[in-house]
């Protein structure tokens, strides 16, 4: 995991030109922006109210009134997918935030101090990695009760060691470099160097990992909601929509198809975006990733 620091040699215009010439990036960006836009629009407007159940309209097939059909409670699937996007994005984003917020300082600290501190932190990391993630998430929600907040915590905890590892590996590659030596000679402390010099140089690495973890977070949230441990009604969530759909696969296939597609498209978009960013900022990664 070595990092090339090519940024200073490139102008912003150059990066942008490269970005919009990159197919992965463009497609990924468009999809991601679309999903975010849908989530934002849902705050202002949805085709119908997702908290009102109209049992009389249950399991209607797609029509001009309900584009994606209705579910077993007569709710509009399109509206639920729109509001569900909000839930998916929020859960995944905060979970990634927790992972970054705690993992990056830990990793940077481990790299800066080295020795026993490094060793101890990395072993704790290994410990968390050793627990099967889904299983642990199930146990966490079994203790604290299911809900969006606890899903965030469960997913967030498993993001910490990921970011700690990436940050540590990135930082380790930077520490021996000359400009760091210069900064140390100038009397700057460990913390200051980490913040001023290390962090900016591993930012792209973290950004790429961030998009990957974001996509994984959306999948994880869907999985947790699917087993009933995610956001609770009346808040729609894509995973629970699939759970509700599964017994009605033959009679109301639209209940399964549209939320499933929403997950696939969102995750696909984020992964493409992550690949694209990696390609643009680190040409060597085009071969590695």
């Amino acid at each position: 995991m070595t990092m090339r620091i090519d940024l200073p040699e490139e102008t912003l215009a150059g990066v942008l030109a490269k970005a919009f010439g990159n197919r992965s990036f463009v497609i990924g960006l468009v999809i991601t922006l679309l999903v975010v836009a849908v989530a934002l629009v849902s705050f202002l407007w949805t085709p119908s109210d997702v908290t009102r159940l109209v049992i009389a309209d249950k399991t209607q097939s797609p029509s001009h009134v309900h584009w994606f059909g209705t579910d077993h409670f007569g709710r509009d699937i399109l509206s639920m997918i729109m509001v569900g996007a909000r839930n998916s994005i929020a859960v995944a984003l905060v979970a990634v935030g927790i992972g970054m917020g705690i993992g990056v300082p830990l990793g940077a600290f481990a790299a800066a101090r080295g020795g026993m501190v490094d060793e101890a932190l990395m072993r704790v990391n290994d410990l968390v990695f050793a627990f099967p993630a889904l299983l642990s998430a199930i146990m966490i929600t079994a203790i604290f009760g299911p809900g969006a907040v606890n899903a965030i915590i469960a997913i967030g905890i498993f993001n910490i060691p990921v970011f700690a590892r990436v940050a540590r590996a990135g930082a380790l590659a930077i520490w021996p470099r000359e400009f760091i030596l210069a900064a140390r000679a100038a009397g700057k402390g460990m913390t200051r160097i980490s913040i001023e010099h290390i962090l900016p140089n591993i930012a792209t690495l973290l950004l790429v990992q961030g998009t990957i973890q974001f996509a994984l977070g959306i999948l994880a949230e869907a999985g947790l909601s699917y087993v009933g441990l995610g956001a609770q009604p009346p808040m729609p969530s894509w995973g629970r929509m699939l759970f509700d759909a599964q017994t009605r696969m033959v009679t109301a296939p639209w209940m399964a198809i549209f939320p499933g597609m929403a997950i696939v498209i969102t995750v696909l978009g984020l992964n493409l975006l992550g690949d694209g960013i990696a390609d643009i900022l680190d040409p060597k990664s085009r071969r590695r990733r």
Binding site: R52, L53, I55, H72, F73, G145, P233, P234
Partner: peptide, 22 residues
């Protein structure tokens, strides 16, 4: 689980906010 969601929606009409705890 299904009945609870319907009751939640129905009680909302008279101003009772139910929080579902599975």
């Amino acid at each position: 689980r299904d009945g609870g969601q319907v009751i939640q929606s129905q009680l909302k009409d008279i101003g009772i906010n139910l929080q579902i705890i599975p």
